[in-house]
């Protein structure tokens, strides 16, 4: 058995239902994500179109994160899922440096690496991942790619020639496929990312990765000097943005 994922980008309408379902199911902290939906605007006004691309861990067959993890916190399950044992993770961030898909984040609450596990806990119980269940247009297709009669295998066969993976040149053998994707949507270097230019938010980079007061030194100094209470606004740089915007108002 080898579990895989396919997203039909022709169907995706960017509702972010999958993203929210994932956050709720896996208690993903604010400013972190296991699954995100990226909007890319293509063309020049008035001839523009907007594409929506859900992105999650690719559960690669040759996962660089699994290779670089010094303590086997990242490991394969027999069904092909690249799972993570956060109780073993030392927080070295090697996996974040190794993942070509930017699918791993440092959980600011646990200070350990975290990522999509294809909802391994749900799959074990015979359920579909939360994002699959939440998708209103069935753009997310999940199943056994070793089984040629599975929905995902048949979908891949039906769309032969139009199935793509992200960054095939990295030789990671990803088990996450896209139908209807283009270079502008799947290649992060094929579109511009203008700092501060985004719908609804002006955050494009996190100020810190994980808890900013995570170090050994902080453990000794905090009881004496203390530090700002960690909340979901602090590490995302929202506080500084808020201050900046207040300054602008006065």
């Amino acid at each position: 058995m080898k579990l895989g994922f396919l997203v039909d980008l022709n169907l995706c309408m960017g509702c972010k239902g999958c993203e929210i379902a994932c956050k709720v199911e896996n208690e993903v902290p604010l400013a972190s994500w296991r699954l995100k939906v990226k909007y890319v605007d293509i063309g020049v006004f008035p001839d523009t179109s907007r594409s929506f691309t859900p992105m999650r861990c690719n559960h690669c067959e040759d996962a660089p994160c699994e290779k670089i993890c010094p303590v086997s916190a990242l490991h394969y399950l027999p069904n092909g899922i690249v799972n993570i044992d956060s109780s073993r993770c030392i927080g070295c961030a090697g996996c974040i440096m190794a993942c070509p898909y930017d699918a791993i984040y440092m959980n600011p609450e646990t200070n350990t690496a975290d990522k999509c596990t294809y909802c391994a806990h749900r799959v074990e119980g015979g359920m579909m991942p939360a994002c699959v269940v939440a998708c209103p247009v069935e753009a997310n297709i999940f199943g056994d790619i070793d089984n040629k009669d599975s929905h995902i295998s048949r979908y891949i066969m039906e769309h032969q020639g139009g199935v793509q993976v992200r960054k095939p040149e990295k030789h990671t053998n990803p088990k996450h496929y896209y139908v209807g994707g283009g270079n502008q949507t799947l290649n992060p270097l094929a579109h511009q990312r203008i700092e501060g230019y985004s719908l609804f938010t002006n955050i494009t980079h996190l100020d810190t990765v994980g808890d900013p007061n995570h170090s050994m030194l902080d453990r000794f100094l905090t009881p004496i000097f203390g530090h700002d209470h960690l909340d979901n606004t602090g590490f995302a740089g929202m506080e500084s943005n808020k201050k900046d915007s207040n300054k602008g108002e006065h």
Binding site: V40, I42, D102, Q184, S198, L199, T204, H205, L206
Partner: peptide
Amino acid sequence: VAATHAVVSFDVALNGIVW
């Protein structure tokens, strides 16, 4: 060319410098 001009219009915050 204008037809291939692509801009990210909405995304989550990315990791900055990790190491």
